[in-house]
Amino acid sequence: MITTPTPHTLKRREYLQSYAMIAISVIGLALLVIYPLGWILRFSLYRYDGISEPIYVGMSNFIRAFGANGARYWQTVRNTFVFAFGKLLVEIPLALVLAYIVAGKIKGRSFFRTVYFLPSMLSVAVMGIMFYYLFGSYSGAINEIVRMFGGAGNTRWFSSGTLAMIVIMIASVWQNFGINMLFFMTGLQSIPEELYEAATIDGANSVQRFFRITIPMLAPVSQMVIMNALLGSLKVVDLVLAMTNGAPNFQTEMMMSYVYKLFFASTQLGTANNFGYGAALSVITAVILTVVTLIYLRVTHKGSEIHD
C-alpha cells in the first residue's frame, strides 16, 4: 500500500538526506582543515618535541622567531619573496603577450596553445629534477650548449645562491607561463570585438590597441591571475625540495620548505625537534600569506576603481 507522505515529513526527509550527503565532506573539513589549524595555533604556545609532555611557554616561540635565533627563518621569507617577484616579473608579461598573440587569428594557434600549456601538466617535483640535470655542472646540457657556442661552459649553477635561485625561477616560469596564458586568453575573449574595430578606424595600430584597450579591459582577469600566481609562488615547496633542497647554505630555502623541515627533517637543519617553534613559524607564515592577500585585494580594488 502506498501512503502519501505529508509535506512536513517530505521536508524532513529532504533535510536528512541533504545532511547525509554532505556529512563526509563536513567531517573531512573539520578533521583535515579546521583541527590542524587549531593544533598549530595551540602548539605555537608550547615547547614540544613529539615525545615528552608539551610544556606551555606562552609567547616565547614567537619571541624566538622575532629574535636573533629567528634570522634563518626570515632569510627564507626573503628568499621566497625574491623568488616570487623575480619570476612573476618575467612570467606574467610573457603569458600576457603570448595570450594576446595566440588568441588572435594567427595560423597554428591551437598547436602553440597546446605546447605552451604542456609543462603545467607535469609534476613540479619531477620537473625540478629535470632542470637539476639540465643545469648540471659537468654533464648538463646547458653548459654543453654554452661550450658549443664557444663559451667556457663550466658554470656551477648550484654552487652559487644567486645562480641556483635563477635556475629555480627559470624552471618555475617554464612550468607556469602556459596556464597563466590560458587565464589571460579567457579574459581576452570577453573583450568586445567592436572596441578594436572602432580603435582601428580611429587609426590605432596594434601596439596602441594592446596598451589602450587590451590592458585596461583585462584588469579584472589580471588581478585574479596575478593573485593566483603570487600566492602559488609564495607557497613554493616541491620544486625546491626536489631541485636544491635549500642548498647552498639555505640560500634557496623557502618559507614552506623550512617549516616543513622543522617538523619532518630537523636533522637537515641541525636542530632538535621543536614542534612548538615549527607551529609558531607556521602561524607567522600563514599570517604573512593572508596579509599579502589582503594588501593585494586592497590595492587592486583601488586600481579598478580608478579605471572604472
Partner: peptide, 29 residues
C-alpha cells in the same frame, strides 16, 4: 538542498580556499 545551516556551511567550505595555510598543517594531519 534547502536545509537549515546551508549558507553557513557552504561559506565555511569556500573560505578554506582562502585560508593560506598550505603545507604548514601537514604535521597535525
Amino acid at each position: 538542498g534547502q536545509f537549515p545551516g546551508r549558507q553557513f556551511l557552504y561559506w565555511t567550505f569556500l573560505s578554506t580556499m582562502f585560508i593560506s595555510a598550505g603545507s604548514v598543517t601537514i604535521y597535525p594531519i
